Computed example of a mutant assay.
Amino acid sequence: MLRHEFQPGRFVAGLFIALTGIVYAGDAGGLWETPWFAVIPLVTGGLCLAAVAGGVASGVRRHKRREQQTARDSTPAPD
């Protein structure tokens, strides 16, 4: 199986979209009443949190890549 890097922004977005689906499924099943506008803060809040998580993860990866590059550049060349 091929490995890929973890993308927390996509994880958070998927989590909130799944939560929205669960809320509407509970409403459709008659477990509780959900107003139609409840989806707006769930989805927009989830997407905003996903953007922040993605930005932070991107910054961390960029910083880590720069550190690795400077460490590679600072090693002396073999004779």
Rank of each mutant, 00 (worst) to 15 (best):
R3Q: 13
H4S: 11
H4A: 09
E5I: 13
E5F: 14
F6H: 15
F6L: 11
Q7M: 08
P8R: 01
G9Q: 06
G9M: 10
G9S: 08
R10P: 02
F11Y: 07
F11Q: 02
V12I: 13
V12C: 00
V12G: 00
A13I: 02
A13D: 01
A13N: 01
G14E: 03
F16W: 07
F16Y: 05
A18F: 13
G21M: 14
I22Y: 05
I22S: 07
I22L: 13
V23M: 02
V23E: 03
V23L: 05
V23N: 01
A25L: 05
D27A: 02
D27K: 00
D27G: 01
A28T: 05
G29E: 06
L31P: 02
L31E: 12
L31Y: 15
L31M: 14
P35T: 13
P35Y: 07
W36A: 13
W36R: 13
F37P: 04
A38V: 14
A38S: 13
A38Q: 05
V39K: 00
V39N: 01
I40Y: 10
P41C: 09
V43E: 03
V43A: 05
T44G: 04
T44K: 00
G45K: 04
G45M: 11
G45S: 07
G46F: 15
L47C: 01
C48T: 12
C48G: 08
L49M: 11
L49F: 12
L49P: 04
A50N: 02
V52L: 07
V52Y: 05
A53V: 04
G54L: 15
G55T: 10
A57V: 04
A57I: 10
A57S: 13
S58A: 14
S58N: 15
G59V: 08
G59I: 08
R61E: 02
R61N: 07
K64V: 09
K64A: 05
R65D: 01
R66H: 09
E67Y: 09
E67S: 07
Q68F: 07
Q68C: 02
Q69F: 08
T70N: 02
A71P: 12
A71K: 10
A71C: 10
R72H: 08
R72N: 05
R72P: 03
D73Y: 04
D73W: 02
P78F: 07
D79I: 08
D79H: 06
